[in-house]
Design a protein around this nucleic acid. Structure first.
Ligand code: SF4
Ligand code: SF4
Lengths: 143, 143
DNA sequence: TAAATTTCAGATAAAACAATCCGATTAAAA
DNA sequence: TTTTAATCGGATTGTTTTATCTGAAATTTA
C-alpha cells in the first residue's frame, strides 16, 4: 500500500535530503546514495535524472561525476520534489475517492480531511532542506 | 497517484457507506451500488465478497439477493473497512519512506507526520457509519 | 590519445494493482 | 419443477508502477 506518495517520490525526497546533507562534499555518485539509502540504484538514478530536468538537482557526467543540488538548500522544499514527481493532485482529492468535490455536497469526512491536507501541505512547504540536515544525517546512520 | 488508500479500499468504504444509507431497504444489488457510485461492477462485487468474509457485510444469494451490512451501522467504523482491505500498516509508516521508525532517530518530518497519522486515524475511528448517513445521501446525489 | 568511470537514454522485465469474464451455486417465483 | 436473478469463486486480462539492463556520451586522469 502507498502511504500518500509513490515510491518514486519517496526515493526522490530521500535522495534530495541526502544531497542536502552531503552538500559540502561536491557531487555524490548514485552508487553512494543508493547504497546508504538502501534503494535500487538504477531506479534512484532515473529519479535524479528527472529531478535534474526539473531543475532541483544538477548532474555532472564522466569520471568523478555525480549529482548535487542545483540550488541552495535554503530555497528547496520537500513540496518542490513532490510537485516535480507525483504532482500536487493529492492535495485536491478525497480520501474516500468520491468525485465532485464541492463544499455544498461534502463527503462524510470532508472537514477533517481538509484539515489533514492542509497540515500535510504545510509540513512539506514550511521548512527548507537546510533545516532537515542534522535529522537527515542521524536518520541515515540507522538505515 | 494513490491518496492514502487503494482503489479497492476507497470503493469498499463507498460501498459500505452506501449500504448504511440504504440500510432500511433490505439487501441491495451490486448493480445498483455500482451504477450509482459509478464504479466497476465486478470489482465492487469482489470487494463486497471479501468484506463478507470479514464479517462487515452480509450477502444473500439468489433472486432478490444482494448485500447488506452485517451489523448495525452504529458499531461499524470506516477504520474497520480499511483494516479489512488495506490493513493498518500506513498508520505505522513514514511519509518519506524511511525504514527503522524509532523515536530516537526521527526522520525530518517525524513530529508533524505523527500528528497527521493520529488525526487520520481518529477521523476514521471516532464516528460510526450511522453518523454519516445524511452526508452520504447528499453526496451520492451529486455523483 | 587511451583508459577509466560516471551519467544519460531508451528498451525491457517483473511485480503490483485494477478490472473483467465466466461457470457454478443459491434462492425465490412462476 | 423450471425459470429467473442474484452472489460466489476462480481464472484471466489489462494497466500502472517499480525495477533492471544495456549501450552511448561525457569527463577526468594517465
Ligand atoms: S467532500 Fe471533502 S473530502 Fe470529499 S472530495 Fe470533497 S473536499 Fe475532498
Ligand atoms: S521517523 Fe517519524 S515519520 Fe519517519 S518513519 Fe519514524 S515515526 Fe514515521
Amino acid at each position: 500500500m502507498t502511504v500518500i506518495f509513490s515510491k518514486k517520490c519517496e526515493y526522490g525526497m530521500q535522495a534530495v535530503l541526502y544531497l542536502a546533507a552531503h552538500q559540502t562534499e561536491g557531487v555524490t555518485r548514485v552508487d553512494d546514495i543508493a547504497a546508504t539509502l538502501k534503494v535500487p540504484k538504477e531506479f534512484v538514478s532515473k529519479i535524479l535524472q528527472s529531478l535534474t530536468a526539473s531543475g532541483i538537482v544538477a548532474s555532472k557526467k564522466g569520471k568523478f561525476g555525480g549529482f548535487a543540488l542545483a540550488k541552495d538548500p535554503s530555497v528547496i522544499r520537500l513540496i518542490d520534489v513532490v510537485a516535480a514527481i507525483d504532482g500536487l493532485e493529492m492535495f485536491d482529492s478525497c480520501v474516500l475517492g468520491f468525485p465532485n468535490c464541492t463544499p455544498d455536497t461534502p463527503c462524510p469526512v470532508h472537514d477533517t480531511w481538509g484539515e489533514l491536507r492542509t497540515l500535510a501541505y504545510n509540513m512539506l512547504t514550511e521548512e527548507t532542506l537546510d533545516k532537515f540536515k542534522q535529522k537527515t544525517i542521524n536518520k541515515i546512520k540507522t538505515i
